[in-house]
Design a protein around this nucleic acid. Structure first.
Lengths: 192, 192
DNA sequence: CGGCCCTTTGACGGACGTCAAATAGCGTGG
DNA sequence: CCACGCTATTTGACGTCCGTCAAAGGGCCG
């Protein structure tokens, strides 16, 4: 786990493994802001030297590389296309945060979990991390990670996952997930 | 109300009045992403030409001005201090979104509403929009706005506001709010 | 074997949602 | 001026989703 102090000076990108950025509350409960996969920037905010408002936990062992903040900023200013691409990354990051806000504010437990699974599936697929035939993928999250990402309790997450399994929508064992009924899962995820 | 299509071509800043950016769900429920006060940029994402994922509603009558996107981008690249200041605005915007995520994921109705009021109070104070002696401020939100911002129902918001009033923490009438017991309100807002 | 963590399951409770009725304010139009 | 329709708010009764608590089992590692 990386403290917010250590983060303040670097600008890291995940190369391998899964991580999560989260905020801890005084009462001990936790809210995951985003799950970080290979290729993800830890946070674009780190470019501007403000001490970040979150912490990061490695879920698997993680490899990452860091850039020099000032050199990166110069590259942004000099190359308009880099600037634009970086801008679009910022926007996507923000759009994901907005979706999480809607999920937490207005969706049920089943919907939140279905959407989490679907969004992870699509992000992993973009990275070629889903087996082409079996549709199986690595899934290192513990149920408490799912709980902290969806604003639920681990106990309730367990019950909802059991429900998805009972309906034959997912298969989930020893750190591996396969979506058996994508259409059904999408239906569970959408309107309430 | 401004549709997402109309927004796509401009880069607007609120000059006067209150507005809200929000996402509408197919079932008709709504989640407010942020309340926009004078001086706020509608969304930094609009700089990069992606069609925004939200809509905007004027809560009062709103005056705003818009900038040319490309000229603004050039100014960012040419003036490092402008670039940095803009970056810091992005970061603050994101930090506010993160706080909302934590609120919706991990806090009770009373806490969410207390935090909404406190954050509005501090933002209005920064803008000199709180009367110095009486601590009174304009408060044009309807209860359904508060509900959509906190992920609650208008009925429950009404009950929670009644509770705050009963405890003598706030005074809220005809579009005007005064915080009577800031310390108590802060206690309600913090740990659960 | 014996802890420890994770997961599962059930019983129960509480926070918040839903539904409904009553009231007030406010603008419109007769 | 009054009737009316609309919207916002308040309040209470009741329902439900999810949290809490507890017990039990499994896997892993010392």
């Amino acid at each position: 786990m990386i403290s917010s102090e250590e983060l303040a000076e670097t600008f890291p990108i995940i190369c391998q493994g899964w991580a999560a950025s989260f905020i801890l509350l005084p009462n001990g409960s936790r809210q995951i802001l985003s799950l970080l996969l290979p290729g993800d920037i830890l946070s674009v905010g780190l470019l501007f030297g403000t001490r970040p408002n979150f912490q990061v936990e490695a879920i698997t062992t993680v490899h990452y590389c860091t850039f020099d903040r000032n050199k990166f900023k110069q590259a942004l200013r000099n190359a308009p296309d880099v600037f634009d691409r970086f801008g679009r990354i910022c926007v996507e990051e923000r759009a994901a945060a907005d979706q999480l806000i809607v999920d937490l504010g207005r969706r049920t437990a089943l919907e939140r979990i279905a959407r989490l699974i679907l969004s992870l599936e699509s992000r992993l697929e973009q990275r070629g991390m889903v087996q082409a035939q079996t549709k199986e993928m690595d899934f290192p999250l513990r149920q408490h990670h799912i709980a902290d990402a969806t604003g639920l309790t681990p106990v309730h997450v367990s019950k909802m996952l059991a429900e998805f399994r009972r309906r034959g929508m997912i298969e989930l064992n020893e750190r591996s997930l396969t979506v058996r009924d994508p259409e059904g899962l999408r239906r569970s995820a959408n309107l309430r």
